[in-house]
Structure formats: C-alpha cells, structure tokens
Amino acid sequence: MQNIIIGQYVPGQSFIHKLDPRAKLLTAFLFVIIVFLANNWLTYALLGAFTLIAVFVSRLPLRYIYNGLKPILLVIILTFLLHVFLTKEGPLLFNLGFLEVYEGGVKQGVFISLRLLFLIMITSLLTLTTTPIDITVGIETLLGPMKKIGLPVHEFALMMSIALRFIPTLLEETEKIMKAQSARGAQFSTGPIKERLKSIVPLLVPLFVSAFKRAEDLAMAMEARGYRGGEGRTSIRLLKWSGKDTTLFIILLILSIGLLLLRS
C-alpha cells in the first residue's frame, strides 16, 4: 500500500501531460457536448480519430486506458445489445424467429457504444495525465467566478485537497488496524460472507474514531496557522496558460466545425 498512486495519475512528459489542467478540463467538458453532434459514420470516424490521436499523443501504455474502460465495458455491451434488439428501423437484416435484427438497430447500437467509449477514453485521459491536486486547482480556478453567486468553490477545493492528502494516511492506518485485528483472529479475505462482514465492524469503528480525532486536530492546526476562509487568500500553485493550450482549443474548434459540416 506504500506505493499507492492517488487517483489514476500516470506520470509522464507528453504534450497532454504538460497542458494546463484548465485546458484539459474545458476540453473534456466541451468534448462531452460535441460528442452529441455526431450522427453518421463520417462524424463518428472524426471523433474516433480525435480520441485515438489523443491517446497516442499521451504516450500512455494502452493497458491504463483499458483499465479505465473495464468497469464500463459491460454497460457498453448491454447498451449495444439493447439497441440491436429493440430498435426496429430500416431493412430487416435477419430473423431468428424469436428476435428480429434491423439495420437501424445495429447502426444505433454501434453509435451509442462508440459515443460512450469516446467519452470514457477522453475523461480517463484527463485523470491519467493530470494529478488530482492539479485537477482540483483547475476546477477551483475555473469555477472562481461562481464564488460571487455564493458557491463555496474555495471550501470545496480545500476539502478535496485535504481528502487527497489524507487518503494514503488513512489507508496506512487501515492496514495497521487490519493487521492488529488479524492477529486477534479476524478474517478479512476468507471465510463465509457473514463472518467477513462481521470483521469489518471492528475495523471501521477505530478508523472512524481516529479520523474524527484527526479532523479535529487538523482544524485546530489550520486555525493556528491563520486560516480564515478563502477571503483574501493567495495561492502557491500557479497555473500557466501557454501556446499549447491555445493550440488544443483551435484543434477542438476545428473538430466542432468539422462535425457541424459533416453531420446529416
């Protein structure tokens, strides 16, 4: 557990790694919107090309992308099958007696599955190439103006960064308590489900007690160091918008125009 990577971040030096987190966040957000512009083979091919090039440029081992897709794969397959079997459009392709498959159904199935696939790939790419703390800072800066309408942007970002800071600490502690309870005969990974569930309670209770103690201590320490909310606070983390980020936007713009021109 010592070498646990928080989130999914995979360190690297690629073009995508070096982009400003704000640019990546905005791109992912805009991508979610323009994905819905695609409605024929050509536009889906265009989106596919963009996604694949992005994956290629990130120089991430494909295994990581696949890991990100794995949990959602079943959903994609199910969506595909549902569309194939339930959409009755266009010419009949074949008839197995109890079910009929139409061309429109296959097309719809493929499109929806691709749409999901692209979305997951692009968002995974964001979390794989950006540290969680950079994502947090990015969100905080992007949502900065929302502070005026009373959205607790700073508090949210601070909460996120403290959570990120304490995840390894709490994992370490969980491990320690698990060892202590194992030494007393608790079984976490073998035995009947009921027994295993029972052994979780003596794990969670001390964990919660200590987490509350930590929270109290931390609040005290933060106050002692002059914390008084986001008002008038400066930040050591600096985000730099550079040419690369603008380039990304131009690419995204071209992609959107392409989609608008080619969609039917």
Partner: peptide, 11 residues
C-alpha cells in the same frame, strides 16, 4: 502540535 500527521495540511 503533537501529532505530525494531523497538522500537515498540504499535499
């Protein structure tokens, strides 16, 4: 403070 972990705010 006493506990080194519980006063470390930054990542």
């Amino acid at each position: 403070f006493q506990n080194p972990d519980n006063q470390f705010v930054g990542t």
